[in-house]
Amino acid sequence: MNIQRIWMVWLLLLLSPALYAEIKNVSEGKAKILGDCALCQQGIEKAGYEKNISRVSWDKDSKIALITYDNKQTNLDAILKKIALAGYDNERFLAPDQAYAQLADCCQYERMVKTKVNSSAGADHHHLTMDNEPSMAGSQEEPLKDLLMAYYAVKDALVETDGQTAAEQAKNLLGEIKAVKMGQLPHEQHMIWMEVMNDINMEALRISETKDIEKQRNYFSALSENMYKVLKVGKPKEAIYYQHCPMAKGGKGANWLSPFATIKNPYYGAQMLSCGKTTETIQ
């Protein structure tokens, strides 16, 4: 008993410097880091760890991390940047979308800041030019503009073969479907919209409910047909390209809408990105 205790003391004496004396010039800091589960905890602590330089201990409930580091070698900013690059928003840095998207499902915490969608269609497309020309994208003039942008964002996610983002963007699309001001639509377009609205909604909903890319593409094909019906009777300010890939859906073929003439096929992603052709230009 006694001998055992002495051993314990010795062990502690031996171990304690080994455990704690490794980081010199110690500074400590606290920071809020977002995450949801034990997997996140692992990820955060791993991203912030550097042998003999920094150590992070994160609490899942309070979202507060205690950061211990060598102030001659690094600083809080540098450590928090590494943690953000691993996918975790924190009080100083927001993770790149791509890093966030690659986190495990249980770790898909709610983002700290919702930034506006940066789809390649670029809602900002024409007010980025240098001349500061007045914005033409006003939803007043084109009541379906926002809807179309949200649709493009879903399409871009499918081009990327990113089911996670596709589902998120489809949720966004659901919001835009509800936000369409039917009263501002020209008569003919109004009628068609009433006809296909529910279908469009259903298809967007289905895409948002799964992360299975193949299912999403299937729904997307139907969604695209309905979007086309509505849009072809309008006169958009910017051309919409109606594009077709004969190989999609196991050879049955499928269509989609794009703001660009260049083909970026949402049905195959990187596999056959440039398969397809423009069959109609709506303008």
Partner: peptide
């Protein structure tokens, strides 16, 4: 990213002339 089988099919497929065209191969411009 691209699976091995896809990579092979890509080589045989229509994208052979686009094999090094990064704008055709991805959504990154």
């Amino acid at each position: 990213g691209i699976k091995k089988e896809d990579e092979d099919s890509m080589k045989m497929d229509h994208s052979s002339h686009n094999r090094y065209n990064s704008n055709a191969m991805s959504s990154i411009t």
